[in-house]
Design a protein around this nucleic acid. Sequence first.
DNA 1: AGGGAATATGCCTGTCAAGGAATATGATTG
DNA 2: CAATCATATTCCTTGACAGGCATATTCCCT
Lengths: 110, 110
Amino acid sequence: MPTRDVFSVIADPTRRQILDLLCQREMGVGELVETLGLAQPNVSKHLRTLGEADLVHVRIDGPRRHYRLRPDRLRELEEWLAPYRRMWADRLDALERHLDQLDETDHEED
Amino acid sequence: MPTRDVFSVIADPTRRQILDLLCQREMGVGELVETLGLAQPNVSKHLRTLGEADLVHVRIDGPRRHYRLRPDRLRELEEWLAPYRRMWADRLDALERHLDQLDETDHEED
DNA sequence: AGGGAATATGCCTGTCAAGGAATATGATTG
DNA sequence: CAATCATATTCCTTGACAGGCATATTCCCT
């Protein structure tokens, strides 16, 4: 059971970047540091955070640690999206946007 | 052009709750205040934030404002998820978890 | 055992966002 | 125009978190 909320964990852009990288292949910390151009302690801290959300898994290989993506938890996001996905399934967005614009010309609003 | 990042906006649980409510039907601020049990200024602030991310649309009806869900921006999330969704499409998660457990018995890790 | 490489942890500081309370805005009715 | 209702905005305080830096840990090699 993860000790951290997936939503808040992926709210950070750097963390999303890390996930995107790990989506391709498993990577070591050094590799990530080089690719991201961040300080090593920072990368380690982000990896820890990702681990606390069960978004990554560590494979220990001697002194190095290889991080692998663990996509399971992202299904939570997927599930959360489900009800909303239905909304753009039957509703034509172009029409929707058009109606919104009409509304907005009536009275300026967000 | 939204002035705010969808990821960080939906990181807040209260905001997700609001979205879930608006998923059913359009709602006025008073209704939301009652349902959520939060202070009105707070609800207004969250609605503003949601608006800045283009996640809601306001319909003005006299002195009241009715908020409607605008699902477009959630497609961004959907798109971001796409590459990861492929990972659990072909990979059997039960097997994956099983392998992870084997790894974890070798060396305790996150 | 000692030294060095790879990675993690702790501390500090600045920033940002949430919640609460008070107040301001805007529209409606008389 | 005064009163009132619905909603928004401001100010304040507090807590969380990212980044930078220094340091600790763990493992390998000889």
